[in-house]
Design a protein around this nucleic acid. Structure first.
Length: 414
RNA sequence: AGAGAGGUGGCCGAGUGGUUGAAGGCGCACGACUGGAACUCGUGUAUGGGGCAACUCAUCGAGGGUUCGAAUCCCUUCCUCUCUGCCA
């Protein structure tokens, strides 16, 4: 959640920032009003309560002293009615404020370029040059058919469309990649963590998936549980509602989880192949940091993800997302896009975001600096998306006959 | 899943309707004592919100309710422990 106080105090500046992310100005004006009326409602409620508390104490005193309490009782009864009225007004104001506030995205950093969608993203650099093929490189689904690697039909039979089955060499490669990624991250100081794949709604609100994006989540019927869409949710919320000590920071975590997404808004996109599935494996990095050095750690995370791709000899490019393409919780995001020769395109394989204190405010993750508590910064990034790496290996390491080489660094994992 | 017990501050633990945001202890911080330390003594020591501040509101697992007033009573819910059941 954004800092409402700051938002209120610098309304013009704040709303200009949010407009960069495509938020409607009338929503923001509404939010400002809701915030004022909540403050008003709360302060009159508090006044009435303070009054009540004082009189109640008197009440006890009078009784002890054997004084007459009828008059006081009448006063106190009346005030009680006032309180219950003010209470309901304050609750109303609270509900309507948070309904709006929780749906407001994070402020983008000043460094975020203006732009509407992915076409306005800015390429920072390319790493490694795509190899020259002396034949027409095939797409991964064609290679899959030749090698028997991915069984799309049976995946659909077992579940529904956008599910698939890996078998034999590809299943082993998937597992090798997970282990390889976890080892790489561990070497950079990330602690390996294994988490529940179902999280409750409070956690999903903490990282920003709820309440606004519930449509993209698989929910367990009759329970307050959701299949996680990314390990960012459990890893970040590991410290939900906790106060850390300053010298625990930064906390660097990595974990493998499957991720589950309904892909509600993606009907018709990437229907062929394994680019966009309802279930996919991902190894995630999450950092909980002091705001003072979150930029530094952000750069380290980008570098780490890029290094892993380099170790796999996969050509990729590093892209800075524009305001319009930035995710809900992010104040800044860098995507890594891997080269897919079969598709003749760079495709997203990692996304690294600094959410600053946006998630920390929602999830109440703070650290103690002397007497004072401050919100931490939270960062997350893939290192890496496993399924998409598998595809990238298939397409980049293919031979003319359709066979696929195994990258050198993975051989010891197979 | 069924039966029982229980959830109080960093930890232990008292507290069954009235200056209790919470005794006492441990821990921790600071000060005194010491050459230094231990011991001892003194002081301080939860979180969130509003306010420039004085101050004020909320929080004794969570949410509701009863009451002038609730950690204490009622309801709902979550969690932990023990026994039974079931499983990997």
């Amino acid at each position: 959640m954004i800092n409402l106080k700051l938002f209120q105090q610098n309304f013009d500046e704040a709303s200009a920032k949010l407009e960069k992310k495509g938020v409607d100005i009338s929503t923001l004006k509404n939010l400002k009003e809701l915030f004022s009326s909540l403050k008003e409602a709360n302060s009159s409620l508090e006044l009435a309560k303070a009054n009540q508390n004082k009189m109640s104490k008197l009440f006890g005193q009078y009784k002890k002293e054997g004084k007459d309490i009828d008059e006081l009782k009448a006063k106190v009864d009346k005030n009680k009615e006032v309180i219950s009225y003010l209470q309901s007004k304050a609750r109303e104001a609270d509900n309507s404020l948070y309904e709006v506030a929780l749906a407001i995205p994070n402020f983008p950093d000043d460094s975020v370029p203006n732009g509407k969608d992915e076409d306005d993203n800015i390429e920072i650099k390319k790493v490694l040059t795509p190899r020259d093929f002396n034949f027409e490189p095939k797409e991964h689904w064609a290679l899959s058919e030749i090698n028997g690697w991915i069984d799309f039909e049976r995946g659909v039979k077992l579940a529904k469309s956008r599910f698939s089955v890996l078998r034999g060499e590809s299943a082993r490669l998937e597992r090798a990649l997970i282990n390889f990624f976890l080892d790489c991250n561990r070497e950079k100081g990330f602690e390996e963590i294994y988490v529940p794949f179902l999280n409750n709604s409070a956690m999903l609100q903490g990282t920003g998936q709820l309440p606004k994006f519930g449509d993209d989540l698989f929910k367990i019927e009759g329970e307050d549980l959701y299949l996680i869409p990314t390990a960012e949710v459990p890893l970040t919320n590991l410290y939900n509602n906790e106060i850390l000590s300053k010298d625990e920071l930064p906390i660097l975590m990595t974990g493998y989880t499957p991720c589950f997404r309904k892909e509600a808004g993606s009907a018709g996109r990437d229907t062929r192949g394994m680019i966009r599935q309802h279930q996919f494996d991902k190894v995630e990095m999450v950092a909980i940091t002091n705001p003072d050095n979150s930029d530094e750690i952000f750069d380290m995370m980008v570098q780490n993800a890029s290094d892993i791709l380099t170790a796999l000899k996969l050509p990729h490019r590093i892209v800075r997302l524009c305001g319009g393409d930035l995710g809900f919780s992010a104040s800044q995001t860098i995507d890594l896009e891997v080269w897919l020769p079969g598709q003749n395109k760079y495709r997203e394989i990692s996304s690294i975001s600094n959410t600053r204190d946006f998630q920390a405010r929602r999830a109440k993750i703070r650290f103690k600096d002397g007497k004072k508590n401050h919100l931490v910064n939270t960062l997350n990034g893939s290192a890496l998306a496993v399924g998409r790496t598998l595809i990238a290996i298939m397409e980049n390491y293919q031979n003319e006959d359709g066979s696929i080489e195994i990258p050198e660094v993975l051989k010891k994992y197979m």
